[in-house]
Simulated assay, not measured.
Amino acid sequence: MATPKKVTVLDYGSGNIRSAVRALEHVGADVTLSRRAEDVLEAEGLLVPGVGAFAAVMKALKDVGALQWIGRRVAGNRPVLGICVGHQVMFEEGVEHGIRTPGLGEWPGSVELLPAPIVPHMGWNTVEPPENTRLFKGIENERFYFVHSYAVQKWQFDVTQPRMQPPAVTWAEHGARFVAGVENGPLSAVQFHPEKSGDAGAQLLKNWLGTL
């Protein structure tokens, strides 16, 4: 029997932490809920949850020292998975009510209000993963549960090194096409909530554990 993968769920005050812990435990992970540097840096996988406003999440991450920890993990090829606003903060900036807040800058792009008749985008929606996806393998045609008003709607990734693999980008649509997931080496993130997405979400988490 395989040894369970050790995953730390970053405890920085986000509202959906307990459900993320339970979902990972359900698919067989050995989960620690922590904001201690050693737990974050030494785990095989780090999950960064997030709900609420982009600026508030960035401040909370900064307050516990997590911005440096996430950067160190990515630089050291140590897997990280962001969820919802934990996905959004991986981009260059968030724009809310005309205020621009810098993100982690791991990927280019601005998180902006969806141009939809009804926001938030709340409920089940399909996604369009690329052929080389690992996160969505076997669940390419499933639906996932979204709750958000903001998203990255333009993706431009300039690969300056010929041997660099461009990220695998998954799209969805609500008022406009938006980035629903990114897989980029050790760093992956999804705009929806896998912990609220039933069997499909559980399989996505299993797929992520399989990359650790």
Rank of each mutant, 00 (worst) to 15 (best):
L46E: 07
V9Y: 06
N16V: 03
H174F: 02
G15L: 03
A2R: 14
E183H: 08
V7Q: 01
H97V: 02
G103N: 02
E92Q: 14
M122S: 06
G82R: 08
C84H: 08
L33Y: 00
I17A: 11
P166D: 14
F192Y: 11
F144L: 14
Q191V: 07
A168F: 03
G98P: 05
S188M: 11
D158T: 13
K206F: 00
G138P: 07
A20C: 15
Q88R: 06
P4T: 11
A176R: 15
F54D: 08
P186K: 08
R78N: 09
E38F: 00
G15P: 01
R78Y: 02
Q165V: 08
I139Q: 02
Y12H: 03
H121C: 04
L104H: 10
F146N: 07
A75P: 01
L114E: 12
D63G: 02
E96H: 02
L81C: 03
E142S: 14
E128L: 04
F178Q: 13
G175I: 11
L204H: 05
V31H: 05
D39A: 08
V85C: 10
R35G: 14
N184H: 15
G175E: 09
A200L: 04
A55L: 05
V179I: 15
E195A: 00
G181R: 07
E173G: 05
Q191A: 13
E106Q: 15
M164Q: 15
A189G: 15
E183P: 09
G94K: 14
G76K: 04
R78P: 02
L24C: 04
L114K: 13
G138I: 06
P4K: 13
T101V: 04
D11N: 13
T126G: 15
G138Y: 05
M90T: 10
G138A: 10
Q161P: 00
I118V: 15
Q165Y: 00
V147Q: 05
G52F: 04
